[in-house]
Amino acid sequence: MKIAGIVVCCLVGALLPLWLSPSQTRIFTEMLYLSLFAISFCFLFNYLGLLSFGHNLCFGLSAYAVAIYFNSNPDGSLWIAFLLVIGVAVVASTLSGLLLMRLNGGYFALMTMAICQLAFFVASKWRAVTRGEDGLMMSTPQITPPGISNDAVSQTVLLCWLALAVLVFGAGLLAWYLRTPLGRATILLRENESRAAFLGYDTRVVKLAAFNVSGIAAGLAGALYAVYQGFVSPVALGFGLSGDVIMMTLIGGSGSFLGPAIGAAAYTGLEDVLPGFTSHPRFVIAVIFVALVLFVPAGISGVLGRIQRRRDRHAPVKGEVPA
């Protein structure tokens, strides 16, 4: 039943761009890759109970990787670009994961922020590679799927289909991961980390694996972002984006896939529509953010509450009180 629903959604998603105008298709494409980004964030939050204030690390680094690749190989292949992105994401999530795997709660959030800020700083200063704050213009690759001639379908539509395919792949990767023994181990960590250790699970390594999977999904989204924008600047590694993805999660409600997708779509819609109403759209978005956090619907607060209850739970004696 679920599979049928997913297939229908994919079909609708594939047919939509043929019917929408090019600018609407662009917006739809943006919704698609932001959905993947939001899904990767929710994965960490739902299954590890970890709130990341710097989730766009892999997103931004992958975007830069893609831009640099295509600038040095204008005729490069998208396949290679995506493989490169997966590699970058694995390296980045493993290295940052080594720093993060012993941390929880507020320290974790601050550390993710610090690491992402550091990347932002390097991107802003390393002019030789990233052109610093001016950003990297990118020669947009031609999307040439086999069997479809260049004239039949526009690049805009092809990019949309590419985004849809990558979204399905990324989400599918996460869904598959959860069904494997390693994915189960990840869920165990959220439920009762100390008991998982008492069963023999090496919790730090399991966390690293989860970071990698989430990072790969975020990286794939970042690659799409680069191709979509044709331009990458340190903004991709900045605070704004990390706040945006949190907001998407709040709008969309709990859940691992549909929720963040809805949130991403709603957020993109907001961003598109607001400039028509006010000259300070980011301010309005910030107000909405605060309001959402304050009056958050039961769905999300249910998730937050559940996670907090688990964290506060008395794990048997961590050594402070002798008995």
Binding site: G105, G106, V293
Partner: peptide, 13 residues
């Protein structure tokens, strides 16, 4: 309602 909520609140502020 929780420490997560705190974090999110200060972040949104």
């Amino acid at each position: 309602k929780s420490h997560f909520h705190d974090l999110l609140l200060t972040f949104s502020l």
